[in-house]
Amino acid sequence: MTDQPMVRFDNVSKRYGPLTVLDGLNLDIMRGEKVSVIGPSGSGKTTVLRMLMTLEKINDGVIWVEGEPLTHMERNGKLVPADLAHVRRVRGKIGMVFQSFNLFPHMTAMQNCIEAPVTVLGMKRAEAEARAAELLGMVGLSQKKDHYPSQLSGGQQQRVAIARALAMRPKIMLFDEVTSALDPELVGEVLQVIRQIGREHDLTMLMVTHQMGFAREFSDRVCFFYQGKICEQGPPAELFGAPKNERTRQFLNAVLEAG
């Protein structure tokens, strides 16, 4: 069981009309593995996360989570498209942090963090608050728990969003360009939090990022996406140090020049 992947994309395709965004993706992510996804815009990298979070329907293939199909369910030995109850059961293992934070603006930081634990998991309010206070402390926002999102800086909002996702005790965390909407001086505080939860939690993490330095230092593996396919993947030292593929080299050169 231990060598069973936490997440498996099995020949997954995604199309929007005539446009193929992902073309027969095969990707296994192991328990506790930190995987970064890089690539030019339009390469399908965000779609990978959104499909796993069930925000996008897939057109072909099957996504598995801990050996269980997410997009499908078993009926009489065959895989049929999953119903909502099944999706919700499996989806509970996954949490996601968005580029644009997406905090609930009508709730304080604390309320944001206890909402789903109380309504979805049926946790007692006091228990949820204790847990949320702990998480807000971990992201360095104990003092801001009664603030509304619009009273917080972008970096603070994103840290609340991370605490909110962690409050659901996911096994897999998805980070979708979580620093792209931030002012440059606020990027560091968010990356610091991600580093920390990477160390402290036994989480499987999949992140789409433009922070090449962070991807290199933080991840166990980096996948370079190009035109809906994984063009090259490997340990960060190899992929960044000695990219084999011409496309990867071009992309990294372009990014490094810009950055």
Binding site: M53, L55, S100, N102, F104, H106, A116, V120, A165
Partner: peptide
């Protein structure tokens, strides 16, 4: 109500009625 609010509620595994009642309708 911005689409991101639906997506965040989905990522927190809320049901459709929970999303509507707690997140979308109040906004």
């Amino acid at each position: 109500v911005p689409r991101g609010q639906w997506e965040a509620s989905t990522a927190l595994n809320m049901s459709r009625p929970q999303m509507l009642r707690r997140i979308i309708l109040p906004q």
